[in-house]
Simulated assay, not measured.
Amino acid sequence: MARFTVTQGVRAPASEVWAALVDWRRHGDWAPLTTVRVTTSRPGGVGAQFVARTGIGPLAFDDPMTVEFWQPPAGDEPGRCEVVKRGRVVLGRAWFTVVPLPGGTSRVEWGEDVTVTPHRLTRFAGPVLSLAGRAGFGATLRAMAREVEKQNRRPLPPRSA
Score class of each variant (00 low, 15 high):
residue 1 M to G: 13
residue 2 A to E: 10
residue 2 A to R: 11
residue 3 R to P: 04
residue 3 R to S: 14
residue 6 V to T: 07
residue 12 A to K: 15
residue 15 S to F: 03
residue 16 E to D: 07
residue 18 W to P: 05
residue 18 W to N: 00
residue 20 A to M: 04
residue 20 A to E: 14
residue 20 A to P: 06
residue 21 L to I: 04
residue 23 D to Q: 10
residue 23 D to S: 09
residue 23 D to N: 04
residue 23 D to E: 14
residue 24 W to F: 08
residue 24 W to T: 01
residue 25 R to T: 12
residue 26 R to V: 04
residue 26 R to I: 05
residue 26 R to H: 06
residue 26 R to L: 14
residue 27 H to T: 14
residue 28 G to A: 02
residue 29 D to C: 09
residue 32 P to S: 10
residue 33 L to F: 14
residue 36 V to Q: 05
residue 36 V to S: 02
residue 37 R to K: 14
residue 38 V to T: 14
residue 39 T to N: 04
residue 39 T to I: 13
residue 40 T to I: 05
residue 40 T to F: 14
residue 41 S to E: 13
residue 41 S to N: 05
residue 42 R to Y: 08
residue 43 P to S: 15
residue 44 G to F: 01
residue 44 G to R: 04
residue 45 G to A: 03
residue 46 V to D: 15
residue 52 A to R: 07
residue 54 T to G: 07
residue 54 T to P: 09
residue 60 A to G: 13
residue 60 A to R: 13
residue 61 F to P: 05
residue 62 D to W: 10
residue 62 D to Y: 10
residue 63 D to C: 08
residue 64 P to A: 02
residue 65 M to D: 02
residue 65 M to H: 01
residue 66 T to Y: 07
residue 67 V to C: 07
residue 67 V to A: 07
residue 69 F to T: 01
residue 70 W to M: 13
residue 71 Q to D: 06
residue 71 Q to I: 01
residue 72 P to N: 04
residue 72 P to D: 06
residue 73 P to M: 11
residue 74 A to Y: 07
residue 74 A to S: 15
residue 74 A to P: 03
residue 75 G to Y: 07
residue 76 D to C: 05
residue 76 D to V: 12
residue 76 D to G: 14
residue 77 E to L: 12
residue 78 P to I: 05
residue 80 R to V: 01
residue 82 E to Q: 08
residue 82 E to T: 04
residue 84 V to H: 03
residue 84 V to P: 00
residue 84 V to W: 11
residue 85 K to L: 09
residue 86 R to T: 09
residue 86 R to E: 11
residue 88 R to Y: 14
residue 91 L to T: 15
residue 92 G to H: 02
residue 92 G to D: 08
residue 92 G to Q: 08
residue 93 R to V: 15
residue 93 R to T: 15
residue 93 R to S: 15
residue 95 W to F: 05
residue 95 W to L: 11
residue 96 F to W: 02
residue 97 T to A: 06
residue 98 V to T: 03
residue 100 P to H: 03
residue 100 P to A: 01
residue 102 P to W: 08
residue 103 G to E: 02
residue 105 T to Q: 07
residue 106 S to T: 03
residue 108 V to A: 04
residue 110 W to R: 06
residue 114 V to P: 08
residue 114 V to A: 06
residue 115 T to G: 11
residue 116 V to Q: 04
residue 116 V to E: 06
residue 117 T to R: 01
residue 117 T to K: 01
residue 118 P to T: 14
residue 119 H to Y: 13
residue 120 R to D: 13
residue 121 L to D: 02
residue 122 T to Q: 04
residue 127 P to H: 10
residue 129 L to Q: 07
residue 129 L to T: 00
residue 130 S to M: 08
residue 132 A to Q: 14
residue 133 G to Q: 05
residue 133 G to S: 09
residue 134 R to A: 13
residue 135 A to K: 08
residue 137 F to A: 09
residue 139 A to V: 05
residue 140 T to I: 09
residue 142 R to N: 09
residue 142 R to E: 15
residue 142 R to T: 13
residue 143 A to L: 00
residue 144 M to F: 13
residue 145 A to L: 12
residue 145 A to H: 06
residue 145 A to Y: 00
residue 146 R to Q: 13
residue 148 V to W: 00
residue 149 E to L: 09
residue 151 Q to A: 12
residue 151 Q to S: 06
residue 153 R to D: 12
residue 153 R to V: 15
residue 153 R to G: 10
residue 155 P to W: 06
residue 155 P to F: 10
residue 157 P to C: 13
residue 157 P to S: 15
residue 157 P to H: 14
residue 159 R to Y: 14
residue 160 S to E: 11
residue 161 A to Y: 02
